[in-house]
Computed example of a mutant assay.
Amino acid sequence: MSQRAWVAAAIHKIEADFNRSADTHLIPLALPNHPGIDVYFKDESSHPTGSLKHRLARSLFLYALANGWLRENRPVIEASSGSTAVSEAYFASLLGLPFIAVMPASTSPEKIAAIEFHGGRCHLIADPGAINAESARLARETGGHFMDQFTYAERATDWRANNNIAESIFKQMADEPHAIPAWIVCGPGTGGTSATLGRYVRYRRHDTRILCADPEHSVFFDYYRGACAGTPDTTLTAACGSRIEGIGRPRVESSFIPSCIEAMVKVPDALSLAAMRYVSTRLGRRVGGSTGTNFAGVLALAARMRMAGQSGSIVTILCDSGERYAHSYYNPAWYAERGIEVEAADAAIARAVAGEEPAGLAVAGEW
Rank of each mutant, 00 (worst) to 15 (best):
V267G: 00
A182D: 04
D346E: 12
M307W: 07
D346T: 09
N33C: 12
G187M: 07
A274G: 01
D23I: 13
W367T: 02
I340M: 08
R202N: 09
N67S: 10
N73A: 14
D148Y: 14
A300S: 13
S81W: 05
R282A: 14
P258R: 05
S328N: 07
S280F: 13
F256Y: 10
L94P: 01
Y223C: 03
M305I: 09
P128I: 04
P128H: 05
K171R: 15
M305K: 13
R140H: 07
R160L: 11
I27E: 01
G120D: 00
E88Y: 09
I244L: 02
M173R: 06
R199K: 10
E116M: 12
H34I: 08
A345S: 11
A213E: 01
I257F: 04
T208P: 04
N294D: 04
H118P: 03
A229W: 05
I169D: 00
N67M: 11
A182F: 10
M307P: 00
A64F: 04
G144Y: 05
A79V: 05
H34A: 15
T107N: 04
L56E: 00
R71S: 11
R338L: 14
T316P: 02
A336D: 06
T208R: 04
S45A: 15
G82A: 08
H145F: 13
E245T: 06
A179D: 02
R137C: 10
R137V: 11
G292K: 06
H178M: 12
F41W: 10
N132D: 11
A239E: 10
K42M: 12
D17C: 12
I131H: 02
S80R: 10
I169C: 02
E357P: 08
A326V: 14
I37T: 00
H25S: 14
E88W: 11
K111A: 06
S254C: 08
E262F: 09
M1H: 13
A195D: 03
A113G: 06
A275C: 14
D214C: 09
G50Y: 06
G339R: 11
V102G: 00
L52M: 14
G187A: 12
F221R: 00
R338E: 03
K13V: 07
G312A: 11
G191I: 04
A347W: 05
F117Q: 09
D43C: 15
G120F: 09
I317K: 05
A5M: 15
L124Y: 07
G288D: 03
A354M: 09
A113S: 11
V298S: 00
Y63R: 12
D233S: 13
E176Y: 07
E154I: 05
S321F: 07
A136C: 08
H206I: 08
D222R: 08
A66F: 09
E366C: 14
E356V: 10
H178R: 09
L138G: 01
T235H: 10
T316C: 15
F41M: 14
S51I: 10
L31I: 07
H25Q: 12
A344Q: 13
T293H: 01
G189A: 10
H327R: 15
W159T: 05
P232F: 13
A139V: 06
L62D: 00
E357V: 14
I261P: 03
A344R: 12
R20V: 04
M276G: 01
V267R: 01
L283D: 01
I14V: 12
A336R: 15
Q149G: 07
P232A: 13
R74L: 12
A92F: 09
K13H: 08
T24E: 03
L56T: 06
H178Y: 14
L283E: 00
G284E: 03
S313M: 13
